[in-house]
Design a protein around this nucleic acid. Sequence first.
DNA 1: TCCGGTATCACCTATTTAGCGGTATTTTAA
DNA 2: TTAAAATACCGCTAAATAGGTGATACCGGA
Lengths: 210, 210
Amino acid sequence: MKRDLDISVVIIEDDETIREGYAFLIGNTSGYKIAGTYPSVEETLKKIEGDDPDVILLDVELPGISGVESLPKLKKLLPETHILILTVYEQEALIFKALGNGAAGYLTKNTPPERIIAAIHEVMDGGGPMSANIARMVISSFKRNESSPLTRRETEILEQIATGKSRKRIADELFIDLETVKSHIKNIYHKLDVHSKADAIKTAKDNKFI
Amino acid sequence: MKRDLDISVVIIEDDETIREGYAFLIGNTSGYKIAGTYPSVEETLKKIEGDDPDVILLDVELPGISGVESLPKLKKLLPETHILILTVYEQEALIFKALGNGAAGYLTKNTPPERIIAAIHEVMDGGGPMSANIARMVISSFKRNESSPLTRRETEILEQIATGKSRKRIADELFIDLETVKSHIKNIYHKLDVHSKADAIKTAKDNKFI
DNA sequence: TCCGGTATCACCTATTTAGCGGTATTTTAA
DNA sequence: TTAAAATACCGCTAAATAGGTGATACCGGA
């Protein structure tokens, strides 16, 4: 048995039953081995360097330091390790924070065992495994609102404003007069019923107009 | 055979061999039926309303109107239909534009047939099927740079600036003095080697500091 | 315990920008 | 062919920006 070529996995999960369940599942799958299991981030940080895992399965709701908060620390300690979130939580804010903090994938706990194994393999292969509803949320975060009141040009100009450019600079880059830009902005403000660029940007982003 | 309960699929793809291949594959899978196949968007728009498909498989590189550009029109015509991109292209810009325009999933053409069938089912179930490398790109688009030169406070302030808020307003909302905000901004500009907020925002976004 | 980085606040100047009120022409797409 | 969209101009005031120079308090790691 070539244990050196096995994918080594660490599990960080406070519920012992679940933790041992995953460990049993993964440890008994050919090609995978368990390098360590921990009930908390604090425990993990003390010993994980010796484990040198390829993949970490991380719960987000842990006692003490939460899983999401620990992500930067884990990534710093083990830059090459892929971290998979495995949790019951499906709140958008939590998901995007986890992905922003360096999670390589996000699975919910109703994921069938074979899918978890597949996800570990997938993440080693450069993929980004996600549960179906997580993927849906991630995709719809990109989706623009089809029924924007703004015209194409207005949208374009508001996008430019949102990058912090001045009206003069926008005018120059779009090869139109400063006065034209001002006209568009007046119309944008009127349509969105706002009176400042900050409010215009906020309204437009909230409604996915930009 | 209860054809009414089958998932009806339309394929838009200019290569006849590929198009007929997918049609054969899907048409011969129990639970799925082909409502129509088209070589171009122009052809599709004329007749697709009669097809009333549940799912459209859409190629992005089509002669005439491109697949990505046609997304808003298709969505307007068939608001309930899920559109899956099926293409060889893996350019980030194209992917994010497709997702922004309302695509419900993104598959590359090396996807095995059974995965395509699964993806159609998944999208009907509210999921967001993506090929592994697409998912990786999508996930890493959320990822922040761990080695930002900016401090926590500086990052926070630059994020606020990127929302279009004035320094005064940022100061008020963070309960600090306007002068403090100005100091932070000076430091930010120096660290990023820029001389305007537009450039600071651009540099920070390019490097995923914010 | 000391020190460097961080966060905080101050005062100065000059210039640019933002926002609001109108009006009006040309171009484009349904 | 006509309404919507994009373009442009004028005048006005208040606000915001960018740069310089300096100072004080705090806090975490060596």
